[in-house]
C-alpha cells in the first residue's frame, strides 16, 4: 500500500471529478460559494471514508448478486446521519445545500469507489482511498467555488474581495457558469496531464 501514490491519484491522475467524471450533479450545482464547497466537500469525504471502511469490512459477507443494493443501503445510512447532523449543527449550510445532501446517496463517486475499490481491498487501504478521493473531490469543488464566487459575486466566504468598482460577472453563479467553468477546468487538467506525460516519455526516451 502506498499512501503517496493513492493521494496523487485522488488529487490528480485519477481525480474523481475531472478524470473519472463522477459526481457531476453536485459539483455543478453547489459550487457557487466557498462555504457551500467546503460543506459539501467535507460531507462527501466523511461519507465516502465511512462507507468505504464499512463496505471493506463487509466485503466477504455481501453476496455478489445483491451487492449494489447492499452498498446503497450502507451509503444511504451514512448520508442520513450526515444530513441530520448538518441540519442540527450547521442549519445555514444545510439550507443552502438543500436537496443535494440527501442526493449524495446517488452520487456516483461513492458507489463507484465502493464497487471499484472498497469491495476488493483491505479496510485500511479503503479508508485511505476514501480520504484521498474525498480530498480530490473537495479540491475540485474549491477551485470551482473560488473562481465562481470571486468573479461571479466579487466575494470570498461572503467577504468583499474585489474593489467596489468591479462589476460581478453574474453569469458565473448561474447554472451556465457551472458548465463553462467545469469544462474549462477539465480542459486545463487534460492539457496539463498530457504535457506531463510527454515530458515523462521524453525522459524515458533519453534514458533508453
Amino acid at each position: 500500500m502506498n499512501f503517496g501514490k493513492q493521494f496523487k491519484e485522488g488529487l490528480l491522475t485519477n481525480n474523481p471529478v475531472t478524470v473519472q467524471l463522477l459526481g457531476m450533479c453536485s459539483t455543478l450545482a453547489i459550487t457557487t460559494s466557498m462555504a457551500n464547497g467546503i460543506g459539501m466537500g467535507l460531507s462527501v469525504t466523511i461519507i465516502l471514508t465511512l462507507a468505504n471502511i464499512f463496505i471493506a469490512l463487509l466485503r466477504k459477507v455481501i453476496p455478489d448478486e445483491v451487492r449494489i443494493a447492499c452498498f446503497i443501503v450502507v451509503i444511504a445510512g451514512f448520508v442520513t446521519m450526515v444530513d441530520l447532523s448538518l441540519q442540527a449543527f450547521f442549519p445555514a449550510i444545510a439550507k443552502s445545500l438543500g436537496v443535494f445532501i440527501p442526493l449524495i446517496v446517488v452520487n456516483c463517486i461513492i458507489l463507484g469507489r465502493a464497487e471499484a475499490f472498497a469491495s476488493k481491498n483491505t479496510v485500511l487501504a479503503s479508508a485511505v482511498d476514501g480520504i484521498c478521493q474525498g480530498i480530490g473531490y473537495t479540491a475540485v469543488l474549491l477551485v470551482l467555488c473560488f473562481f465562481r464566487e470571486l468573479l461571479g459575486a466579487g466575494t470570498l466566504f461572503g467577504v468583499q474581495i474585489m474593489p467596489k468598482s468591479y462589476v460581478p460577472a453574474g453569469i458565473l453563479v448561474l447554472p451556465v457558469g457551472g458548465f463553462l467553468c467545469l469544462g474549462a477546468l477539465i480542459a486545463a487538467m487534460q492539457w496539463g496531464l498530457k504535457k506531463a506525460e510527454k515530458k515523462n516519455a521524453k525522459k524515458e526516451g533519453e534514458q533508453a
Binding site: 467524471l21 447554472p175 451556465v176 457558469g177 457551472g178 458548465f179 463553462l180 467545469l182 469544462g183 474549462a184 477539465i186 480542459a187 486545463a188 487534460q190 492539457w191 498530457k194
Partner: peptide, 17 residues
C-alpha cells in the same frame, strides 16, 4: 485538442443552459 471529450460536451451544455 485539450477540449476533447468531456470539456467540449460541458461547454456545449453550458451554451444550451
Amino acid at each position: 485538442e485539450s477540449f476533447e471529450g468531456f470539456p467540449i460536451a460541458l461547454i456545449t451544455s453550458g451554451l444550451l443552459a
